[in-house]
Amino acid sequence: MSYAQLPRTHYPTILALFVATLIISNVAASKGVQFFADATLTLGPLQVLPINTDGAFFLFPLAYVLGDVLSEVYGFRAARRAVITGFGALALTTLSFLVVIALPAADFYENQSALESVIGVVPRLVLAGFAGYLFGQLLNSAVLVWIKNRWGEERLWVRLLGSTVVGELADTLIFCSIAAGAIGIATAADFVNYVVVGFLWKTIVEVLVMPVTYQVIKVLKRSEPGYTPAA
């Protein structure tokens, strides 16, 4: 028997993790989350406490870590392909949820309203995620690759941090602007808190896991056949 030969590369595995993170994050983001709900603290015009975020706050930074790995090891075109693949999967997820909601509920099924309240907002969150993540992730990848082309293999920390700040800022502003209403954020103070907390959290997490990102990139560069270091 004859079979097509699979290339020896880790790209499909990273792509699968990237897509899974994207889908799970958009569903988890349907829940509004608040920490220190009984506390009140402001610094000038900024409301510091309580902290407003969504249910995807702990997972979404992983998508940017994976995006950095894809861009650094495989280049901008491969990272762009991952973004497009991810949103194709998100589009299928959204369409499936809409069909599930529209299907007639059985007499014994008592959770239609609860189902609609959870996955019914996912299309809006997908729109928010698509707009924010498309611009944010592509900016993240473009900045990382630009810095790498300018300075070569040196200063990886500059590439990772610089691309994160630019990408996360664009992503957070766009996503929060569209998604805030879907999770119940209605006031200007809560919205500013949502944006600032989201941006700082994602950036801090990526900085904290940078040593791990370094090692993953190092291993991939050594193991991927045909990898050519930048001059």
Rank of each mutant, 00 (worst) to 15 (best):
L15N: 05
L17V: 10
T21C: 15
L22Q: 15
F35R: 02
T40D: 13
T40A: 13
T42L: 07
L43V: 14
G55Y: 09
F60P: 00
P61F: 08
V65N: 07
L66G: 00
V69F: 03
L70P: 09
F76C: 05
A79Q: 02
A82K: 00
A82Q: 01
G86E: 01
L90F: 10
L92K: 11
S96L: 12
L103W: 02
L103Y: 01
P104Q: 14
E110T: 12
N111L: 08
S117Y: 06
S117G: 10
G120N: 05
L125A: 07
L125I: 11
V126Q: 04
F130Q: 04
G132N: 03
L138N: 02
N140M: 05
V145L: 09
K148P: 04
R155A: 04
S163G: 14
T164R: 00
V165M: 04
E168M: 05
I174R: 10
F175V: 10
C176P: 03
I178L: 03
G181S: 09
A182N: 10
G184V: 11
A186K: 05
F191M: 10
V192Y: 00
N193Y: 07
G198I: 07
G198F: 04
K202A: 09
K202V: 14
V207F: 11
V207M: 12
L208F: 09
T213Y: 07
Y214P: 02
Q215S: 14
L220I: 03
K221T: 13
S223I: 10
